[in-house]
């Protein structure tokens, strides 16, 4: 038996490490060591604030936390956060709509891959932020360039993960399906789609992460609304505490989005996590 699945326990462990649902070295119990690492960060931060003794350069952590508490209740900041999240979701959806079919095509057909691959690999080498000026020329200021940037940075991760997913399907699965009476369409819906769900979700996580990372940067330049814009405003108004609070907020939102996708993976590919 060429057991491609490995032992069940090892597989679940690998998945957990990949998904970050397992704290390394922490065993099966929920570990509280992360509290210690947060405490260390705050201690260093507090010490730095004490040494600089400047609210402008390095406000102490408690000031930043107080600013965070104000920020999460500030309707204007929340509105701008909403604008940014909307842009991310639209751009991400475009990346999925283009990336998944293209990934299937390239994963399934060597010829399609040979044609499209050089194109993708060339475009992929251009740093994403280098697209910002051109995207402003094309789409003007506002939603256009930001959505373009999010879709563009995400689509490669989706394509590459989907290709990897399709190519890792063992040939035996196709033969098995055919010998049990499946036609071409059924091989697509009964074999290729379910087998690639976990890889597509991996691609989606990478795309959302990259999108969230670039959109704020794009908003520094290309818009007069959105979370990145609020951050630049806090900077120009010398509100460093607020700025740090906004950074923390960006981290929390990114973290929440990622957790959401991990949850989605667990429900769409629950066969991988059954113990």
């Amino acid at each position: 038996m060429a057991d491609s699945e490995g032992s069940a326990a090892a597989r679940v462990r690998d998945r957990e490490i990949l998904d970050g649902t397992r704290v390394l070295g922490g065993g099966r119990k929920r570990s509280w060591w992360w509290l210690l690492s947060i405490a260390i960060v705050f201690a260093i931060w507090q010490f730095a604030a004490y040494s600089y003794d400047s609210v402008l350069l390095m406000p102490p952590p408690l000031d930043a936390l107080a600013a965070l508490w104000r920020a999460v209740r500030d309707p204007e900041i929340l509105l701008n956060m909403g604008i940014t999240i909307k842009r991310v979701l639209i751009g991400f959806s475009i990346a999925m709509l283009i990336g998944v079919p293209l990934g299937y095509l390239m994963g399934y057909s060597q010829r399609a891959s040979a044609v499209i691959d050089p194109l993708i690999n060339t475009l992929r080498q251009i740093p994403i932020m280098a697209w910002v000026p051109l995207s402003i020329v094309w789409f003007g200021l506002g939603d256009g360039p930001t959505i373009f940037i999010i879709a563009f940075v995400g689509v490669f991760a989706v394509i590459l993960s989907t290709i990897a997913g399709v190519r890792s399907i063992p040939k035996d699965y196709y033969d098995a399906a055919r010998s049990m009476g499946a036609g071409r369409l059924q091989i697509l819906t009964n074999v290729i789609l379910p087998a690639t769900v976990p890889d597509i979700i991996t691609g989606a996580r990478l795309a959302l992460g990259a999108g969230w990372g670039s959109v704020i940067c794009a908003e520094f330049i290309a818009t007069s609304a959105g979370f990145g814009y609020v951050m630049v405003r806090a900077q120009t108004q010398l509100e460093t505490g607020t700025l740090m609070a906004l950074m923390l907020m960006a981290a929390l939102v990114g973290f929440t989005i990622d957790r959401g996708l991990i949850k989605l993976n667990h429900s769409l590919a629950k066969w991988r996590f059954a113990e």
Binding site: M1, D172, D175, R178, S179, W271
Partner: peptide, 19 residues
Amino acid sequence: KPGPDRGFIFQSYALFPWM
């Protein structure tokens, strides 16, 4: 062509892991 008149048992078993 392959068909259900011939059942096949693979060395890898080829059970669908998502089912």
